[in-house]
Simulated scan of single mutants.
Amino acid sequence: MTDLMPFDLLLSVARLGSLGLAAREHGISQPAASTRIRRLERRLGVALIERSPHGSRLTAHGELVAGWAQAAVDAA
């Protein structure tokens, strides 16, 4: 996967606790951010984010992927 945007977006969700805030930080709409995360979840075959009316948090799989994502984003 050469596009790091979904990984960077996942890292923003982890840091900010909100998919909407992460979307705003990346200059995209919340629905666009949600679509990118869902596509990443489908590619990996696991849920990465638990969504709620009070915010979003990473699942255990999301935490694992975020570790890999941070290394990839830092290297880029």
Results as ranks from 00 to 15, higher is better:
M1L: 05
M1Y: 05
T2I: 04
T2V: 03
T2M: 01
D3G: 12
M5F: 06
M5V: 07
P6C: 01
F7V: 02
F7D: 02
L10A: 10
L10C: 01
L11G: 00
L11T: 02
L11K: 12
S12D: 11
S12V: 03
S12C: 05
V13R: 13
V13Y: 01
A14I: 02
A14H: 06
R15V: 01
G17Q: 12
G17S: 04
G17F: 09
L19H: 12
L19T: 15
L21E: 14
L21R: 15
A23T: 13
A23I: 04
R24S: 11
R24L: 07
G27N: 12
S29Y: 07
P31I: 14
P31W: 15
P31G: 09
P31Y: 14
A32K: 09
A33M: 01
S34I: 00
T35Q: 13
R36K: 14
R36N: 04
R36F: 03
I37E: 15
I37P: 14
R38M: 02
R38L: 09
R38S: 11
R39E: 14
R39W: 08
L40T: 04
G45W: 04
G45S: 10
G45P: 04
V46T: 11
A47H: 10
L48P: 06
L48H: 05
I49Y: 12
I49N: 14
I49R: 12
E50P: 11
R51K: 12
R51Y: 15
R51A: 13
R51T: 13
S52N: 06
S52M: 01
P53K: 09
H54E: 01
G55I: 07
G55D: 01
S56T: 00
R57M: 05
L58Y: 03
L58F: 06
L58S: 06
T59M: 03
A60W: 03
A60H: 03
A60S: 08
E63A: 06
E63V: 12
L64Q: 09
L64N: 08
L64R: 12
L64P: 00
V65P: 13
A66T: 04
G67H: 05
G67T: 09
W68P: 11
A69I: 08
Q70F: 12
Q70M: 10
A71R: 13
A71N: 07
A72F: 11
V73T: 10
D74Q: 09
A76M: 10
